[in-house]
């Protein structure tokens, strides 16, 4: 799929960052406002797909040399690890811990192990979506 669409390409360059930043925002804010790992992951993959549409697959895989299957596996490991990790603290599977920490610049910050779990979801979603798109796109 070789396109030569200048307007799309230029717009993509700008929009891409907005989408990705927005997806990160949505991911982290997920515990309080709509969002979370699923939507965040899907938005990020949407951004990468947009990049693929604007340029072509080869270029994108050169810019982002990520093995998406590994990414999905890492995500599973994160989520599974957070779930199993609870066992080491004598609490049932999947019990999360949370607390507030004073960080130097950010001030009072709420930290939550559910975020690690959600990060796993995020990685799996991005990994899976991109694996699907990439394998089909590269086929020929």
């Amino acid at each position: 799929m070789k396109t030569n669409d200048l307007i799309l390409q230029t717009t993509t360059k700008v929009v891409l960052f907005i989408i990705i930043l927005f997806s990160f925002h949505i991911f982290f804010a997920g515990h309080y406002t709509p969002g979370g790992g699923f939507v965040g992951g899907l938005l990020t993959s949407g951004a990468i797909i947009l990049l693929m549409l604007a340029f072509d697959m080869k270029t994108v895989s050169q810019i982002l040399p990520v093995n998406y299957i590994y990414m999905a596996a890492t995500g599973l490991l994160f989520a599974g690890g957070t779930a199993a990790g609870a066992l080491f603290f004598n609490v049932p599977l999947l019990t999360h811990a949370f607390g507030h920490v004073d960080l130097p610049i950010l001030g009072d910050t709420a930290l939550h192990t559910a975020t690690i779990f959600d990060l796993g979801v995020f990685l799996v979603v991005v990994g899976v979506t991109m694996t699907i798109i990439q394998t089909i796109g590269e086929d020929e």
Binding site: G30, H31, Y32, T33, P34, G35, G36, G37, F38, A83, L94, H96, F98, A110, H112, A114, F117, D118, V121
Partner: peptide, 16 residues
Amino acid sequence: AAGKNMVNVILVDFRG
């Protein structure tokens, strides 16, 4: 679960 978005909390915590 120290969250405010119920749907997300159900997903990652209550029904993780």
